[in-house]
Amino acid sequence: MGEKGKGWSLGLAALLGPAAFWLGVFFLLPLLLILAYSFGTSGIYGGLTLGFNPSNYLKVFDPLYLEITVRTLVIAFINTLLCLALGYPLAYFIALRGGRWKTALLILVMVPFWTSLLIRAYAWVVILGGNGIANRTLQFLGITDGPISLIFTPQAVLMGMVYSYLPFMILPLYATLERFDTSLKEAAHDLGAGRWHAFWRVTFPLSMPGVIAGSILVFIPSAGEFVIPNLLGGSQTVLLGNLIQQQFLNARDWAFGSALAVMLAVLLLGAIMFYVRRIGTEKLGGV
């Protein structure tokens, strides 16, 4: 019928105002700036002239930089998979078997969040160092004879990323699993599904919203990660984040850095849309 009640009121505007302002100034505006810069031309000694110069985007497709882009997406993807593989069982256990300990366990998952990333990363440097616990344990168990290089490797970078992003996967998964109706599981068993099939055909498909949310929360930031490759990778693993950082801070090529940033944003947007579309229309669980 009519559009009654859908109009703007002063109250509504007042409520939305601050948020809109904040988003507009601190989110939208910088994005637009970067977009504008990406078409500019960088001076040799830094500085930027605005204009319409698409050559920065051509540079983005240079094989060297393309390789870095691919590597970044692959690592972000593997990171997401690992977080899912490790996080799902943990979230499942806490949500469905946690009982009295649920809250305590959740807090344990979140506690690392409260410490600075730098401190946690340096802790890993110590743990994985030549004389660190990891190496000493391996030697103690007789698996290795001498210290092996664990830190400042691509594996250390991946491990560091999984470590810092795991809570982002666990919490949304927990939220979804917590609401799971266990009588559905019983029904599945009753109809002849063993433990694996009941999980795979009933519990898991119904936890998909949590899986999607967690995956997005992990994938997007890890594609832009640059701190961990430096701290834990000895700057030997160059990801898109590092490349962009270098353009702005070292190479003084802001235009190219902006073009890379825009490309990253577009890629991530595309990946997410593809992912959500695919999961959304597929017959979840089906057969």
């Binding site: 009588s183 029904a187 669980g285 089906g286």
Partner: peptide, 10 residues
């Protein structure tokens, strides 16, 4: 079941 327990995703 009392709550039917129909699988909502199927």
């Amino acid at each position: 079941f009392q709550s039917y327990a129909i699988f909502p995703h199927l």
